[in-house]
Simulated assay, not measured.
Amino acid sequence: MIETSSFQIDGFECFKPEIAILTNITPDHLDRYEYQLDNYILSKMNLFKMMTPRDKAIFYAEDSLSRRGLELKPQKATSFWISLIGPQSAGGFSDLTSLDFAVGGKNINIPVSVLPIQGKHNILNALFAGTAAILAGVEENQLMAGFKTFKNAPHRMELIRTVDGVDFVNDSKGTNVESTFYALGSYDRPMIWIAGGVDKGNDYSILVPLVDKGKVKTLICLGKDNEKLKKAFGGIISDIRETQSIAQAVSWGLESGKSGEVVLLSPACASFDLFKNYEDRGEQFRQAVLELNGKQHA
């Protein structure tokens, strides 16, 4: 199994997967693609260029940019689709209570409640992974066991600690707007959001419904140049602060947060202005949270 970026796909010459997944396409790295979204989409679609009808490609039915990619560059592999809107004749569907797969003549239903990590984006990931696993020959009991025992990787919606009733969540891997969209949408509690870094041509407008009306009470901009973030959310989020110190950001999070609320690091940006990479950013966040003075409840 290989997870690959558009940067790596650009260098592929004869890479030919038997099963390939395109989870979605979101405007990202546009600075690398002459700020032309279609150029970025075409880069992503090159994942499928060597595949044949005997190979399998899995797409998200509700992602308009994936469909745009198929229009720009049709692929030859047999397509499977996952959806949160309606059942698929070949692929996976969830109504957010069960995972329903129709793959290779098999119909498999698994309760969402067995997943150790919740949220709509994790259900989508489970649909992709389950569809690919069934295509690879995994049996239903094996799939169920895999879902039950799954452990999320560090820096991906990772609860670090609860201090005085405030949850501190590390989503440093959220380096683009789409990832942060799913992170913000995972909570129905008030949030203190830590964001910022190296902007890659981001359009923050899709985040507005997730942060307005007090859903995000404080935005802490963590970066060297925060003007775009401040412009995007000024007048929407009442309390906007700036710092280049992650320890200061974490301290402000505890200061602003009340019991039952969430301090979420989900930057929507690359990390290279202040950190080595997103892992370094996440580890520094973890350390700052662990050093907080306060009663630990979890």
Rank of each mutant, 00 (worst) to 15 (best):
M1K: 07
S6G: 08
F7R: 07
F7A: 13
Q8N: 04
C14N: 06
F15D: 02
T26S: 12
D28N: 11
L30N: 02
R32I: 06
Y33Q: 12
D38H: 08
M45K: 11
F48N: 03
T52R: 14
R54G: 09
F59M: 11
Y60V: 00
E71N: 11
K73T: 06
F80T: 04
Q88E: 15
A90N: 13
G91F: 00
F93Y: 13
F93R: 00
L99A: 01
D100V: 05
V114G: 02
P116N: 09
I117W: 08
H121K: 12
N125H: 06
L127G: 01
A133S: 15
I134F: 01
E140H: 14
M144N: 15
T149E: 13
T149S: 14
F150N: 08
A153H: 06
I160E: 14
R161C: 08
V163F: 09
V163E: 07
G174W: 00
T175M: 03
F181D: 04
Y182H: 12
A183W: 01
W193N: 10
G196Y: 08
G197E: 05
V211F: 07
D212A: 04
K217A: 06
C221M: 06
N226G: 05
K228S: 04
K230D: 00
K231F: 07
A232T: 14
G234M: 05
G235I: 03
T243C: 00
Q244N: 08
A249W: 06
V250A: 11
V250N: 04
S259N: 12
S259H: 10
V262Y: 04
L265N: 02
S271H: 10
D273I: 11
F275L: 04
F275K: 02
E279I: 15
E279V: 14
D280A: 09
F285E: 07
E291G: 09
